[in-house]
Amino acid sequence: MSYEFNLSGMAGDLTVFGILGFVTGYVMKKLAKLVLALLGAYIMSLYYLQSKGVITINQNALFNLSKQATNFVLTLGQKIIGILPSVGGFTVGFALGFQKG
């Protein structure tokens, strides 16, 4: 039996998955920052309206809603990672993209 390794094909796959991983990690971190910034601005606007006497806030319900939104974003990220192929190049690219994002 003779086994031949196609190194150029393997290198191409690692490169493609590495680039795909980098882009995915970068976009996910930017998306997480955007979602958290919008959530923070929303909560701050509610407290501003409360300080002006326009509305009253049930703080327990608000913090529970914030916790649910954060958990949704985190589980969505885990689902996306679980769907994508777990290739070494992708994992390294994702880590680098998330770090740079």
Rank of each mutant, 00 (worst) to 15 (best):
M1I: 03
M1C: 02
M1P: 03
M1Y: 07
S2C: 00
S2V: 12
Y3E: 06
E4D: 05
E4F: 15
L7G: 04
L7W: 02
S8T: 07
G9C: 00
G9N: 03
G9L: 00
G9K: 00
M10F: 01
M10K: 09
A11I: 04
A11H: 05
A11R: 08
D13A: 10
D13W: 00
D13T: 11
D13S: 07
L14W: 04
L14V: 02
T15D: 00
V16C: 01
F17L: 03
G18N: 04
G18Y: 08
I19T: 07
I19G: 01
L20I: 09
L20V: 09
F22L: 13
F22Y: 12
T24A: 13
T24C: 12
T24Y: 10
T24I: 10
G25V: 08
G25C: 04
G25K: 10
Y26N: 06
Y26Q: 07
Y26H: 09
V27C: 07
M28S: 08
K29A: 12
K29Y: 14
L31E: 12
K33F: 03
K33H: 10
L34T: 12
L34H: 12
V35P: 08
A37P: 01
A37G: 08
A37I: 02
L38R: 15
L39C: 15
L39T: 15
G40H: 10
Y42L: 11
Y42A: 10
Y42T: 10
I43M: 08
I43Y: 05
S45I: 01
S45K: 11
S45Q: 06
S45P: 05
L46A: 04
Y47R: 11
Y48D: 02
Q50A: 08
Q50Y: 06
Q50I: 03
Q50N: 07
S51I: 06
S51W: 10
S51N: 05
S51V: 07
S51D: 06
K52A: 06
G53Q: 04
G53N: 05
V54R: 13
I55H: 06
I57L: 01
I57H: 04
N58H: 02
N58C: 00
A61G: 05
L62P: 05
L62A: 04
N64S: 11
L65P: 11
S66M: 13
K67Q: 15
K67G: 15
K67S: 15
Q68N: 15
V73C: 13
V73A: 11
V73D: 01
V73R: 08
T75F: 01
T75D: 01
L76M: 09
Q78M: 11
Q78H: 02
Q78T: 14
Q78D: 13
Q78G: 13
Q78A: 14
K79A: 12
K79Q: 10
K79F: 10
I80C: 01
G82C: 13
I83Y: 08
L84D: 09
L84V: 04
L84R: 11
S86H: 15
V87Y: 13
V87P: 03
G88W: 15
G88P: 13
G89P: 04
G89F: 02
G89Y: 05
F90A: 03
F90H: 07
T91I: 11
T91W: 07
V92G: 07
V92F: 13
G93N: 06
F94E: 11
F94A: 10
F94K: 08
A95F: 05
A95H: 09
A95Y: 07
G97C: 06
G97L: 06
G97I: 10
F98W: 14
Q99N: 03
Q99V: 00
K100T: 11
K100M: 03
K100P: 01
G101F: 01
G101N: 09
